[in-house]
Design a protein around this nucleic acid. Structure first.
Lengths: 216, 216
DNA sequence: TGCTTACGTTAGAAGTTATAACGAGACGAA
DNA sequence: TTCGTCTCGTTATAACTTCTAACGTAAGCA
């Protein structure tokens, strides 16, 4: 997580309290959602009175931003340490799904409805592109011949987001489809839009994934 | 919209004020998002003081529920009046996209991150299944032969959500994929996750749609 | 042994949702 | 027209929220 090996005892205490605050914040978010996160409630749970928290986080937004950052990093770490055996984009998909189901609110904190005014700091978009790079790596490894679509041609000249990654347009396209399709199923499932419909969301997830991998 | 032809002048006034409240609520949601909707602010904009609104809506949740209901109905109406010319599921897709871009927060109010405790009333799920029925109708009209997937078999015995609709499993599957894929692209686009990436979200939307319609 | 700095406290401002009590006025009926 | 009822909008209040300000204490450092 954060730098635990601080120099002064003060810094060590500080980072430990910050971590404890985030701990309580996650517990609260898991049950009430991020929009209902209350600094006051966290403070009371920790046995100290309201404004004390502002020594550690300048505002509620700063705490949430840190939670978002941690969530992104957790997802990136999960994907990086997924047992990708050569051509398996599917492993990444199930890693994402497992990570999302493990803590739905954590997934929704990243990919759910954003606050209109909010703008993510640069380091968060960095982690985001790190995640895309992992997808591109796996996609490149399992690349296969498939007809070029108009969107592929478009990506040929609009691939800034891929940075200097050597993946061809078809792989870029596959990574984007991978992202949007899995998010489509996952977000609707986590938001509860499938409840009561009767079918198994896991099977729809697998079906979407299979269709994506068999494309061409 | 609502019943404008009420009997007594009192009821007429009441429904008009309720409509005006929603009007202001939508304006506020469009800029600040639903989570920041303030009854007090609406009241002040309408020239009356805070608690007066509670004569018209028992709580903030009730107002938001009504907004969600209206949003669902608006989407259903948009789809029903879309110029579906026989085999065109694509027309429905662009109708959805147009409706979503017209007021992103309205789309996110329906398909965005829900409040964990919230449970939609029955009439809302009715409208939701009405929307699914429209998709199934269009899918049935443009049905084509395609290999049966494991998920199709699953849907054969888990199709309660389709009610008594005569669509075969392959069409049910297509409707679900239609829903999840378009939502995947749309929600990420509306949430701003594509900003700065350089490519055109509309083209990715079209690519996903084309791939869906060419499946088989 | 001090000095400094960080921490936690209480007090308070400016918001929010929501309830309670009250006055005024509009509506419907006699 | 007059009268009773019922609805509406008001103010006051409670219980929240985030966040700032001022103050005392105590821990760390020289």
């Amino acid at each position: 997580m954060a730098q635990t090996d601080a120099k002064t005892p003060r810094e060590r205490y500080r980072t430990q309290v910050r971590a404890e605050i985030k701990e309580h914040a996650w517990k609260q978010i898991a049950t009430t959602g991020a929009s209902a996160l209350s600094l006051n409630a966290i403070a009371k749970q920790m046995g100290m009175s309201g404004p004390a928290l502002y020594r550690y986080y300048a505002s509620r937004d700063e705490l949430i931003t840190e939670l978002i950052r941690d969530a992104y990093r957790s997802l990136a770490d999960t994907l990086r340490s997924a047992p990708v055996t050569g051509t398996d984009l599917a492993v990444l998909a199930y890693a994402v799904r497992g990570w999302a189901l493990e803590d739905p609110q954590r997934y929704l904190l990243i990919y759910g409805t954003p606050v209109p005014g909010y703008h993510a700091p640069d380091d968060i978009t960095l982690i985001s592109s790190e995640i895309m790079a992992i997808l591109l790596d796996a996609g490149t490894a399992s690349a296969r011949e498939c007809p070029t679509t108009p969107f592929d041609s478009h990506l040929e000249h609009h691939r800034d987001w891929a940075g200097s990654h050597p993946a061809p347009p078809a792989v870029l396209h596959q990574a984007l489809s991978f992202w949007t399709r899995l998010h489509g199923v996952l977000s609707l499932e986590l938001a509860g839009h499938f409840t009561g419909m009767g079918f198994d969301p896991a099977l729809l997830f697998t079906a979407e994934l299979d269709d994506l991998l068999a494309r061409g």
